[in-house]
Amino acid sequence: MELTHIDASGDAQMVDVTAKSVTHRVAVAESYIEMQPETLKLIIEGGHKKGDVLAVARIAGIQAAKKCSDLIPLCHPLMLTSVKVLLTPDTDSSRVLVTATCKLAGQTGVEMEALTAASVAALTIYDMCKAVDKAMVIGGVQVLEKQGGKSGHYQLQKDAK
Rank of each mutant, 00 (worst) to 15 (best):
M1D: 14
M1S: 15
M1E: 13
H5W: 08
S9P: 01
G10H: 03
G10C: 07
G10I: 03
Q13P: 00
M14E: 08
V15F: 07
V17T: 10
V17Y: 03
T18V: 07
T18M: 07
S21A: 15
V22T: 12
V22N: 09
T23A: 06
H24G: 11
R25L: 06
V26P: 07
A27E: 02
A27W: 00
E30I: 06
E30M: 12
Y32A: 13
E34K: 15
M35H: 07
M35G: 02
Q36P: 04
T39H: 01
K41N: 14
L42P: 00
I44W: 00
G47K: 15
H48L: 08
K49W: 13
D52G: 08
D52Q: 07
L54G: 01
L54C: 08
V56C: 08
A57P: 03
A57W: 02
I59W: 04
Q63V: 09
A64R: 03
A65G: 11
K67V: 01
K67D: 13
K67M: 13
C68S: 14
S69L: 05
L71C: 05
I72N: 06
L74N: 06
C75F: 07
P77T: 06
L78E: 00
V83D: 09
L87R: 01
L87V: 07
L87C: 09
D90N: 13
S94T: 05
S94K: 01
V96R: 00
V98C: 14
T99Y: 03
A100H: 07
C102A: 15
C102Q: 05
C102P: 11
K103A: 12
L104Q: 12
A105R: 11
G106S: 04
G106V: 02
Q107F: 02
Q107P: 08
T108V: 11
T108M: 10
G109K: 07
V110E: 04
V110W: 06
V110P: 04
A114G: 04
S119E: 09
S119T: 14
A121I: 07
L123N: 11
L123V: 06
L123W: 00
I125D: 02
D127V: 01
D127P: 00
D127H: 00
C129D: 04
V132Y: 02
V137R: 12
V137N: 10
G139S: 11
G140D: 10
Q142R: 15
V143Q: 02
V143Y: 00
L144M: 12
E145P: 02
K146E: 03
G149F: 08
S151G: 11
Y154H: 09
Y154C: 13
Q155V: 15
K158D: 14
K158W: 10
